[in-house]
C-alpha cells in the first residue's frame, strides 16, 4: 500500500522535499559569506551584503516601485473583477461561461507576449505613460486570479441571503456591502494576496514596460545578477524570502494559506 508507512515512498518524499528546500537554504548561507564572489562553503561571517542592498538605488527604488505597482494592480483587479464576478454569478446571464473564459483569457497569452504587445499598443499607439501601461499589464496578470477565486466563493454562497437582505430593507448596494462582501471576504483576501505576490514577482510583463525611471525590483535583480556575482543578490533574495514568509504568515493568520491554491 502506498500509505504513510510505505518505506520507499517515505524516502522518496524526503529526498524530493530536500531538493526543494536545499537551494533556498544555500542562498541564505551565501548571503553571509565575506568573499567578494559567491562561494560555498562560506568563509567568515558578515552582514556587509545586507548593508550593500541599501547602497543599490536600483534595489531600493525597485522595491518601492514594485510595491506600488503590485498594490495598485491588485486593487484595481479587485475593483474591476469583483463587479464582473457578481454579474456572472448573480444575473443568470446567457453567456456567463463565455464571459468567464474571456476574462481568464489573459492567462493563455504568454506573459512575455503580453508585455511585448502591450508596449506596442499602450505605449506606442495610445501614447500612454509607461507607468500606466505597466499598471495595465500587471492588472491583466491579476484579473484572472480575482475572477477565479472570487467566483468560486460566490457560487458557494446562498443567493437567498441577499434576497433576505433586500426584503429586510437593504438596497442592492447595501446588501452587497453588508451581506455579500463579509461572506466572500476570505476569497477576496486570497485573491488580493495572489495578485499582489504574482505582480510583485513578475518579470516578463515588466520587461518591455520598464525604463530608466521605472525600475522594478525583480528586473533589477535580474540585471544585477547578469553583471555581478556577489552575495548582494543572496542578501536581497533573503530579504524577499522573509517578505514572502511574512505575507504567508499573515494569510495563514487570517484564512489559512491553503486557501491560496484552492
Amino acid at each position: 500500500m502506498l500509505d504513510r508507512k510505505n518505506k520507499p515512498l517515505l524516502i522518496f518524499g524526503l529526498v524530493v522535499m530536500f531538493i526543494i528546500l536545499v537551494p533556498l537554504v544555500l542562498v541564505v548561507i551565501t548571503s553571509f559569506g565575506n568573499q567578494p564572489t559567491i562561494s560555498l562553503p562560506i568563509k567568515g561571517f558578515t552582514f556587509e551584503w545586507y548593508k550593500n542592498i541599501l547602497q543599490q538605488p536600483d534595489f531600493v527604488d525597485g522595491f518601492k516601485m514594485s510595491l506600488f505597482v503590485a498594490l495598485i494592480a491588485s486593487f484595481s483587479a479587485l475593483l474591476i473583477g469583483i463587479p464582473a464576478v457578481y454579474a456572472l454569478t448573480r444575473y443568470n446571464l446567457q453567456h456567463a461561461e463565455w464571459f468567464q473564459s474571456f476574462f481568464l483569457s489573459p492567462t493563455l497569452i504568454p506573459e512575455i507576449v503580453v508585455g511585448f504587445a502591450l508596449y506596442q499598443t499602450a505605449v506606442i499607439s495610445f501614447k500612454l505613460p509607461l507607468l500606466i501601461s505597466l499598471l495595465v499589464g500587471h492588472f491583466l496578470l491579476c484579473l484572472p486570479y480575482v475572477i477565479r477565486l472570487v467566483s468560486a466563493s460566490m457560487l458557494i454562497l446562498d443567493p437567498h441571503i441577499e434576497e433576505a437582505a433586500w426584503v429586510s430593507g437593504c438596497t442592492k448596494g447595501q446588501a452587497f456591502f453588508l451581506v455579500v462582501l463579509p461572506n466572500i471576504k476570505a476569497s477576496v483576501i486570497a485573491a488580493f494576496m495572489m495578485c499582489f505576490i504574482n505582480s510583485f514577482n513578475n518579470i516578463p510583463i515588466s520587461l518591455f514596460l520598464n525604463g530608466p525611471a521605472l525600475n522594478m525590483l525583480p528586473t533589477a535583480i535580474l540585471n544585477y545578477l547578469q553583471n555581478n556575482y556577489d552575495p548582494t543578490v543572496s542578501a536581497i533574495s533573503v530579504v524577499l524570502m522573509i517578505f514572502t514568509a511574512v505575507m504567508m504568515w499573515v494569510v495563514e493568520k487570517f484564512l489559512g494559506v491553503n486557501k491560496l491554491v484552492k
Binding site: L24, N201, V233, L240
Partner: peptide
C-alpha cells in the same frame, strides 16, 4: 511546498 512557489523566480533560478 507553497513557499518556493511564492518566492520570486529570479531567486529560485539564482539558487
Amino acid at each position: 511546498i507553497l513557499f518556493p512557489m511564492l518566492t520570486n523566480a529570479v531567486i529560485r533560478n539564482f539558487a
